[in-house]
C-alpha cells in the first residue's frame, strides 16, 4: 500500500525540515538503517519504523575540500559513524576544517534554512583537539 506521506526519502526530509533527525530501525532483525530505505538492507524485511537516534557519533573518515576564499573557502566533508552503528556523510560545523580528525566525538544537529532541513554535526565539548 502506498504511504500517503510519500516514500521514506520524503519522510526523512520532512522530519529534517521540522528540525528532527530520525532514522529507521528494522523491526525484524533490529538493525538501525541509514540511508532511509523501503526495505532492510540487512534482512530484506519491509517492517521498519522511525526513531530518534542519540545523535552521538565519531568521525570515521575526513577530507577538506579546497576552495578559493572568494568562493567561500575550504570546507570539511566527513563520514560519521553514529553510535547506533550506521554511517553517513556530513560536515563538522564548529571547527576549522583542518581541526577535524578521525576519532573525534561529534553530535548531530539539524539546521533549517528557509524551511529546508540539513543534518550537520558539531564537535563535542572538549573533543575538538
Amino acid at each position: 500500500m502506498v504511504n500517503q506521506e510519500g516514500g521514506v526519502q520524503a519522510i526523512y526530509q520532512a522530519a529534517l525540515d521540522q528540525g528532527r533527525f530520525e532514522i529507521q530501525r528494522c523491526n525484524d532483525c533490529g538493525d538501525a538503517i541509514f540511508f532511509p530505505r523501503e526495505l532492510c538492507p540487512g534482512c530484506g524485511s519491509g517492517d521498519l519504523s522511525w526513531f530518534s537516534p542519540s545523535g552521538k557519533g565519531t568521525v570515521y573518515a575526513v577530507t577538506t575540500v579546497r576552495r578559493k576564499p572568494e568562493a567561500g573557502g575550504d570546507y570539511n566533508v566527513s563520514l560519521i559513524d553514529l553510535e547506533e552503528n550506521v554511517r553517513l556523510m556530513s560536515r563538522i560545523e564548529n571547527a576549522a576544517p583542518e581541526e577535524v580528525k578521525i576519532g573525534m566525538a561529534v553530535k548531530a544537529r539539524v539546521t533549517v534554512n528557509e524551511g529546508h532541513g540539513l543534518l550537520v554535526f558539531h564537535a563535542m565539548e572538549g573533543a575538538a583537539q
Binding site: 573518515a61 566533508v77 563520514l79 556523510m89
Partner: peptide
Amino acid sequence: PYEHPYQPMLPMSAYALA
C-alpha cells in the same frame, strides 16, 4: 541526496576519504 548536500568534490573526495 544523502551526500550531495555536503558538496563532496566527487569522485575525488570519496577517494580522499578512503
